[in-house]
Simulated scan of single mutants.
Amino acid sequence: MECTICKMGETKASDITVALQRGELSVLIKNVPAEVCANCGEYYLSDDIADKVLTQAEVSAAKNAEVEILRFRK
């Protein structure tokens, strides 16, 4: 698909690391499947993948974690 940010690049499937922050909590989730723009690097997550990423982050928040590094659960 064409990148909606730069309008010049095409996306391709790749695994990325997603960094999320909420207040004092920082969560890194590695190996997340995404579509990444070859030109600007912007990434796009499917609705299903985004839901899973947010669920994993919520679990970290519920544990009162401050920093957590996770692998994506497929």
Rank of each mutant, 00 (worst) to 15 (best):
L70I: 06
F72W: 09
V27I: 12
L20M: 15
V32T: 01
T55C: 07
M8P: 00
K30E: 13
K63G: 01
K30H: 13
S46N: 03
C3K: 01
T11A: 09
M8D: 11
A34E: 01
F72G: 07
V27E: 02
I16V: 15
Y43N: 12
Y43S: 14
L70V: 03
R22S: 14
L70N: 07
I5P: 00
M1L: 06
V53F: 11
R71H: 11
Y43A: 15
R73S: 15
R73H: 15
I69W: 06
E24Q: 13
L25C: 04
E58I: 02
D47E: 15
V53L: 04
A50I: 06
N64G: 10
E10N: 13
I29Q: 00
R71Q: 14
D47S: 13
E35M: 07
A13Y: 02
D15P: 01
D47T: 14
T17L: 00
I16A: 03
G41R: 06
T55W: 08
L45S: 04
V27T: 06
S14I: 08
L20I: 14
A50D: 14
L54C: 06
D47G: 12
R73L: 15
L28A: 07
N39R: 05
L45A: 04
E66H: 01
D47L: 09
E42T: 13
A50M: 12
V59Y: 02
K52C: 09
R71K: 15
K7D: 03
K52D: 09
K30P: 04
E68S: 12
C40M: 09
E68G: 00
A19K: 15
A19S: 14
A65K: 01
K12N: 11
A38I: 10
I69H: 05
V67P: 00
C37N: 03
R71W: 07
M1R: 07
K63Y: 06
Y44I: 04
Q56A: 12
A38F: 04
R73Y: 11
D51V: 15
S60N: 03
V18D: 00
K7Y: 03
N39P: 00
V18S: 01
E2D: 10
R73N: 14
V27W: 00
N39A: 05
L28W: 00
D47W: 07
C3L: 00
P33W: 11
M8R: 13
I16F: 03
L25P: 02
F72R: 06
E58S: 08
K30Y: 05
K63A: 05
G41E: 02
L45C: 03
E66N: 08
V27F: 04
S46D: 13
D15W: 01
E10A: 10
A13W: 02
V18P: 00
K63L: 08
D47C: 07
C3M: 04
E42H: 12
V53C: 08
V36T: 08
K74H: 11
A19M: 13
T11C: 09
A57Y: 05
E10Q: 11
S46W: 05
T55M: 04
Y43E: 05
G23Y: 11
E68V: 12
R22G: 14
A50P: 04
A61S: 07
A38K: 11
D15G: 01
L70F: 07
Q21A: 14
F72A: 10
N31M: 08
D47I: 11
V18A: 06
I29R: 00
N64A: 10
S26H: 03
A38D: 10
K7Q: 08
A61D: 02
E35F: 03
N31G: 08
D47A: 14
R22P: 04
Y43T: 10
E2S: 05
V32F: 02
